[in-house]
Structures are given as C-alpha cells and as structure tokens.
Amino acid sequence: MCKINPRVDFAFKKLFGSEENKDLLISLINAIVSEEDQVVEIELKNPYNLADYRAGKISILDIKAKAENGRWFNVEMQISEDYNFDKRAIFYWAKLVTEQLSEGMMYKELKKTISINILDYNFVPDTTEVHSCYKIINTATGKDDRLHDVFELHYIELKKFNKLHHEISSTLDRWTTFLTTAHQLDREHTPKELALDKNIVKAIAAIDRMFNEEERQVYEVRKQSLVDAESKIASALEKGMEKGMEMGLEKGRDEGINAASKTIALNLLGKGIAIATIAEATGLSVLEITSLSQKTSIP
C-alpha cells in the first residue's frame, strides 16, 4: 500500500513537478483541459528542488509549466480548506500571466494561461460535478466569444468524486481515483480500470520510492502540520458556532489557525527541525518562529 499521500502538496509537487515525471503531469493536464489545449511536451518553470525547501524559498507548492504550443499552466494541490481560494487562484493566475512579459515585449505576445486547482474539499457551490471550468464570457449572450481567451481556471473537487471502479470511464476519473485512494493501491493489486493506464501505473510505482530520508522528514512535518492545523481550525469553528455570532466565528477561525501554527512550530523546534523548514510547513515567518524560540528558550 502507498505510504505517501499524494494529496499532501509537498508529495504532489515532487510527483508531478519533477523532470523525470513530466509525462505524468502531461497526462494530468490533458485529462482536464479541452481537446484544443492538449499538450505533447512541457517545460517546467519551477521544477521540484529539495535545496529550495532547505533554504525556505518556497511557500506555495504550485507547478508552473509551459507547453510546446505556447500555453502556460499553473497546477496546484490544496488539501486544507481555504474559503478565499478563489481570490488566491486568480492572483496566482495573474502572476503567471505577468511573468510571461519581459522588458520590451508586447501585450500581444501573452499566451493563454490555464490554472488548474485540485482541492481536497468542497468549494464550488450548488454543483455535484467534480470538475468545474471558468472562462470569461459575454454576459449579454452567455457565450464565449473568444475575445478574452487567455483566461481559463479549473477546479477539481476530490471530495465530490464517488465513482466505483467499474464506473471509471476517463483519464480524469483514473487520476482522481489515484489521488483519493492511493493508500489502497500497490503494483500487485491495481484495479484493471487503473492498470490499463501506464501513467497511473508509473505513479503508483513511484509514490513510495520517491523520497530519500531527508525528503521523508520534510513530508512528515508538512503532513503533520496540515493535520494539526485542521484540528485546531475545527475546534475554533465549533467554538465560534456555539457563540452564534458571525464575527466570533471568523475571529475564532483566525485565532485557531494562528494558535495551531504556533503550537506546531514549538513542537518542531523542540525536535530540532530547521527554522526554514518550520516556516515552510506552518506559514509562519522566520522572524515569528525565531521569536517563539527565544521566548521558550529553545536553541
């Protein structure tokens, strides 16, 4: 059985954002985008690099890639609930658009930019569909007149996927099954509906052998921080709901997130984990963690 959860963003980034696994990223992208946006080859713009994690340079574990047809892609796995993720998704899409233009380039050189967001929670309201796609349309006609075709945003909501193996009918179904049931899969016991896809087979084989000892430690820290944060947030939400006040709920959520992050940081400091790694796992700044260390006399 797979011991690594591919939904943890650190694992997701290495599995789909490494040079040796570009074929897996291509398969995932092609399972989501339209026929006209299918890609054959991609260039990773921010490939997985453990040195970046050691240096604390990476805070968002997204994958940026450019296809041979000029299309740009931003792919991100989000495991923790974020009710402002729609704004964040637009912000990172916009950043990738602006990064295309170097000094002296013209706006006409901007290429279509597609944001793919895989969420391990329900987000898009009033739909049971796993896959939701957003474009800019003409509100008078309700049609996409392709006047603003540089924008496209996708949400894949894993919690809404409930197909049984015999109901799997598409590549997206297979990737969604892999992401949601990796803990039940291994090379010797792979359902035939998944075994027919060489990319899924490769992903199953790769997921448990892709980390060395240092990477596994980072993965475990990241995974635990997500679990602890969710627990603290849930407690804060429950307390806020008991008060029956919207302001109290929002304040409780914010306080819960902050308290969870600080508790996790203190635990990791006590284990001798590097401050840069703790900052990456908790979202706290290096300065905040250094201050915590000084206040608690942790070296």
Score class of each variant (00 low, 15 high):
residue 6 P to A: 01
residue 8 V to K: 12
residue 8 V to T: 13
residue 9 D to W: 00
residue 9 D to M: 02
residue 12 F to I: 07
residue 13 K to N: 05
residue 15 L to W: 11
residue 17 G to D: 08
residue 17 G to R: 06
residue 18 S to W: 00
residue 19 E to K: 11
residue 22 K to A: 02
residue 26 I to K: 06
residue 26 I to G: 01
residue 28 L to H: 04
residue 30 N to E: 13
residue 31 A to D: 10
residue 31 A to G: 10
residue 33 V to R: 03
residue 35 E to N: 15
residue 37 D to S: 11
residue 38 Q to C: 06
residue 41 E to Y: 11
residue 41 E to W: 09
residue 44 L to C: 09
residue 47 P to S: 03
residue 47 P to W: 00
residue 50 L to R: 07
residue 51 A to F: 00
residue 53 Y to L: 09
residue 54 R to H: 13
residue 56 G to A: 02
residue 56 G to F: 00
residue 57 K to P: 04
residue 62 D to N: 13
residue 62 D to V: 00
residue 63 I to A: 04
residue 63 I to V: 05
residue 68 E to V: 05
residue 72 W to M: 02
residue 74 N to F: 06
residue 76 E to I: 10
residue 76 E to C: 08
residue 77 M to D: 02
residue 81 E to S: 11
residue 82 D to W: 07
residue 84 N to R: 15
residue 84 N to C: 12
residue 85 F to Q: 12
residue 89 A to G: 08
residue 91 F to K: 07
residue 94 A to T: 12
residue 97 V to S: 07
residue 98 T to D: 06
residue 98 T to N: 11
residue 100 Q to I: 01
residue 103 E to Y: 11
residue 103 E to M: 08
residue 113 T to A: 09
residue 118 I to P: 01
residue 118 I to C: 07
residue 120 D to N: 15
residue 124 V to I: 15
residue 127 T to M: 07
residue 129 E to L: 06
residue 130 V to C: 03
residue 132 S to Y: 03
residue 132 S to K: 10
residue 136 I to V: 14
residue 140 A to H: 14
residue 145 D to R: 04
residue 146 R to S: 14
residue 146 R to F: 11
residue 146 R to W: 07
residue 147 L to Y: 11
residue 147 L to D: 10
residue 152 E to M: 04
residue 152 E to W: 00
residue 153 L to W: 01
residue 154 H to D: 00
residue 157 E to L: 04
residue 158 L to I: 02
residue 159 K to S: 06
residue 159 K to Y: 02
residue 164 L to R: 15
residue 166 H to K: 14
residue 166 H to F: 03
residue 172 L to T: 10
residue 175 W to F: 11
residue 177 T to C: 12
residue 177 T to N: 12
residue 179 L to G: 01
residue 184 Q to E: 11
residue 186 D to G: 10
residue 187 R to I: 06
residue 187 R to H: 04
residue 187 R to W: 00
residue 190 T to I: 15
residue 191 P to F: 03
residue 193 E to T: 09
residue 194 L to H: 05
residue 195 A to E: 13
residue 199 N to Q: 13
residue 201 V to A: 05
residue 201 V to Q: 02
residue 204 I to Y: 01
residue 206 A to Y: 03
residue 207 I to V: 15
residue 211 F to W: 05
residue 217 Q to K: 09
residue 219 Y to N: 09
residue 222 R to W: 07
residue 224 Q to G: 09
residue 224 Q to V: 05
residue 229 A to R: 15
residue 229 A to I: 05
residue 229 A to W: 14
residue 231 S to D: 09
residue 235 S to V: 12
residue 239 K to F: 13
residue 240 G to M: 02
residue 241 M to R: 13
residue 241 M to H: 05
residue 242 E to V: 03
residue 243 K to E: 13
residue 244 G to N: 01
residue 250 E to H: 14
residue 251 K to M: 14
residue 253 R to W: 14
residue 256 G to T: 11
residue 260 A to T: 09
residue 261 S to Y: 08
residue 262 K to L: 08
residue 262 K to C: 13
residue 266 L to R: 09
residue 268 L to W: 03
residue 271 K to I: 00
residue 277 T to F: 00
residue 278 I to S: 08
residue 279 A to M: 07
residue 281 A to Y: 00
residue 282 T to H: 06
residue 282 T to I: 04
residue 286 V to G: 02
residue 287 L to Y: 07
residue 287 L to F: 12
residue 290 T to K: 15
residue 294 Q to I: 14
residue 297 S to K: 15
